[in-house]
Design a protein around this nucleic acid. Structure first.
Length: 677
DNA sequence: AAATGAAACGTTTTT
DNA sequence: CGTTTCATTT
């Protein structure tokens, strides 16, 4: 391994509490890999090392590099991944959990929230805001109650605190009942397990390495504290702390020396990534933030003389078009591959326009998926079918699927789910395939009967009324007694039954997926989607649109087939899909990234766009949970992604055609003069 | 309670 | 601009 002197010194630190301040581009990854090598050479077992990174991609890369030095066997014995994936890996051995995305859990949360009555003189938090607020609380506070935390945050809302706490209690119980877990639950549950292990002296780790330490939040920090390892090796850069909105607390890195006795601080200052003018600019802007540990960045790459250039455009549209043309020009003149370009923006809303402009010039582009893949209906439905097979009490997924039947909405879907639970003695799979015929599936609800209200719901129908159309084994199934079920919905349930009967015992994800895609229930749904997507304004189906839609759909399925190959059981596949939903990138072309998504990456040619006052820095966001300092750090991160060429662009007018000033960071960098505007 | 169509809505960043 | 929410009808 080739390490410079500073890196070498850090790698050779003795066991203890070590912090490495690694500025952008200073070979952080090499240093972590080097540290692991040192530990192994000193005789530590790979199983005694825990590596925590910010993305799974980062940990995979590091482990791959360790594998090159030692062998694969050894490297793979090192436990490595994000806090969340490490927690999940442990928990799945001990607990039965189904990871759910916040979007889904919010629906469940809403159903609880909606049953509460708030007084009218004040506005309570919306269910969405309340959910997010609680999540931020869990990440950013570990020793306070939500009540205390809210008292500091927003005293006015304390009027509702009893109701809020009641909602959280019920939500928590519901999550336990259905074995649902969200990202925060993973960490909280893992911490509980660690505390138990620690009391028994069974923690296997001697050194914990933590990458991107500046973006650690108190919840994650509490994991490290619960492990309480003999040795810590934390690597980070306070100038790149950009996750305050997720509770990241910059004081965790700045107070390291106070928090850990006999701590050592190392500093990496030689930048191998960027040309000198790029680096000078980045340093100049970031020097407007308070300096915490002394830090200097030295250029190594002195032969790269390219000067960052500023591009001015009249409006957003011409900016995007201009950038697309510029990229094409550079690509042709300098023979730089499209893969080596990145366009970086503060707000995801910039991406659509850019993608359109690039496509107009026939330039491919890839966006780091902000969930869009798993949000498509065809993927969602398919994963729901898998979930239902994997977790026989997954209420959310049952309701999701069943409410696609004609005439059946959320409410009746829930009735059917409850009926399946009853018929199957708490297990929907049994309820569907081997229903207990002696039980009352749809019990009378104990309301209103005393008032003499006529409730026609409970006049149950004869479950055999659709028998002519049903699979033999589904004939007279007790759930069909529901009076709101009609012929169309009965057929849908029949299809569901057939798919379930055929595939519910298959645990190999690959075989299962292949099978499910060819079931009638899925094929019908796909057909419905494709028709819906190829409708023109007058309601007709355009066959060109239809073919395009089908192609895109097939493409997405192909991606899923590709992903699924890495998993050998269904539960881990589903949970992994929830855990790493943003990490897949598709195809070739110019990289389109938010600043956050660009973290840890580097590109020969970088465009930072939409550098206008209010957009970047984004004042709305800065006011929420960040600060101007954090916005400045974001700018710093964006600039330091560039290796050779850097372009900064802004438009004079926004999309409403009103004048807008360039970003303050362009003035701070000395790239524009205040008096010109 | 579901389906449909019309009106409002609000544009964050991630595991 | 596309989604999400609301109101109306069945």
């Amino acid at each position: 391994m080739n390490l410079n002197e500073e890196q070498h010194r850090a790698c050779n630190a003795s066991l203890g509490y070590n912090l490495v301040i690694a500025s952008a581009g200073t070979g952080k990854t090499s240093t972590i890999v080097g540290r692991i090598a040192t530990l192994l050479n000193r005789g530590l077992q790979p199983s005694e090392i825990l590596l925590l990174t910010f993305t799974n991609k980062a940990s995979n890369e590091m482990i791959a590099r360790v594998a090159k030095i030692f062998d694969k066997e050894i490297a793979n014995k090192i436990n490595a991944g994000t806090f969340h994936s490490v927690a999940y890996k442990y928990l799945k051995e001990h607990k039965n959990i189904s990871l759910k995305q916040p979007r889904e859990l919010k629906i469940l949360f809403k159903s609880i929230y909606d049953r509460r009555q708030f007084s009218f003189d004040k506005q309570p938090y919306s269910y969405q805001y309340l959910y997010d607020s609680y999540s931020l609380y869990q990440n950013s506070s570990i020793d306070k109650s939500y009540r205390e935390w809210l008292a500091q945050k927003n005293e006015e809302q304390l009027d509702f605190i009893d109701i809020y706490e009641d909602i959280f209690d019920e939500f928590k119980q519901l999550k336990i009942d259905y074995s649902y877990a969200d990202y925060n639950d993973l960490l909280i549950l893992y911490r509980e397990e660690l505390e138990k292990l620690n009391m028994e002296g069974k923690i296997p780790y001697i050194e914990v390495l933590c990458d991107e330490y500046q973006d650690t939040n108190p919840l994650q920090d509490s994991i490290i504290r619960a492990i309480n390892p003999k040795s810590l090796f934390c690597v980070g850069d306070y100038d790149q702390s950009i996750y305050a909105f997720n509770g990241a607390d910059i004081t965790i890195i700045t107070n390291f020396v106070e928090n850990y006795t006999n701590a050592n601080v190392f500093s990496l200052s030689k930048n191998y990534r960027s040309g000198k003018h790029i680096l000078e600019l980045a340093n100049k802007v970031i020097s407007n933030n308070p300096r915490i540990y002394p830090k200097k960045l030295e250029v190594v790459k002195t032969n790269q003389e390219s000067i960052p250039s500023v591009l001015q455009y009249q409006d957003l549209f011409s900016q995007y078009n201009g950038i697309a043309r510029k990229i094409q020009e550079i690509h042709e003149q300098q023979n730089i591959k499209y893969n080596d370009f990145a366009i970086i923006y503060r707000n995801n809303s910039s991406a659509d326009g850019l993608q359109v402009s690039l496509r107009a010039l026939n330039i491919d582009s890839k966006r780091k998926g902000s969930g869009s893949f798993f949000d498509t209906k065809e993927i969602e439905f398919l994963l729901c079918l898998c979930s239902v097979i994997s977790n026989s009490r997954d209420m959310m997924s049952y309701i999701h699927i069943l409410s696609h039947a004609k005439g059946i909405g959320n409410s009746i879907a829930k009735d059917i789910f409850d009926a399946l639970i009853i018929a199957g003695n708490g297990n929907c799979k049994d309820g569907l395939l081997r229903p207990n015929m002696n039980k009352e599936c749809y019990p009378r609800k104990a309301t209103n009967s005393g008032l003499g209200l006529f409730d026609d719901f409970f006049r149950l129908e004869n479950s055999s009324r659709f028998n002519d159309f049903l699979h033999n084994d589904f004939k007279s199934h007790p759930i069909l007694q529901h009076p709101k079920i009609e012929i169309e919905s009965a057929k849908f349930l029949n299809d569901f039954f057939i798919a379930f009967k055929e595939y519910s015992n298959i645990n190999n994800p690959q075989i299962l997926l292949q099978g499910l895609v060819n079931t009638k229930i899925y094929k019908n749904y796909v057909e419905y989607l494709l028709k819906d997507r190829s409708k023109t304004k007058d309601g007709k189906i355009d066959s060109k649109l239809y073919d395009d839609s089908r192609q895109r759909l097939e493409h997405r399925l192909a991606i899923l087939y590709n992903l699924i190959r890495n998993y050998k059981d269904l539960r881990s596949f589903l949970n992994a899909m929830m855990l790493s939903s943003g990490e897949l990138s598709e195809g070739d072309g110019v990289n389109l990234l938010s600043v956050h998504a660009s973290k840890g990456l580097e590109f020969p040619c970088v465009f930072v766009v939409d550098l206008m006052d209010g957009r970047f820095p984004n004042y709305k966001l800065a006011a929420r949970s960040g600060s101007i300092e954090e916005e400045r750090r974001l700018f710093y991160v964006a600039l330091t992604r560039a290796k050779d060429y850097l372009y900064l662009s802004y438009a004079l007018r926004d999309n409403k055609n009103t004048d807008i000033k360039p970003s303050m960071f362009l003035f701070e960098g000395g790239l524009l003069k205040q008096e010109d505007f």
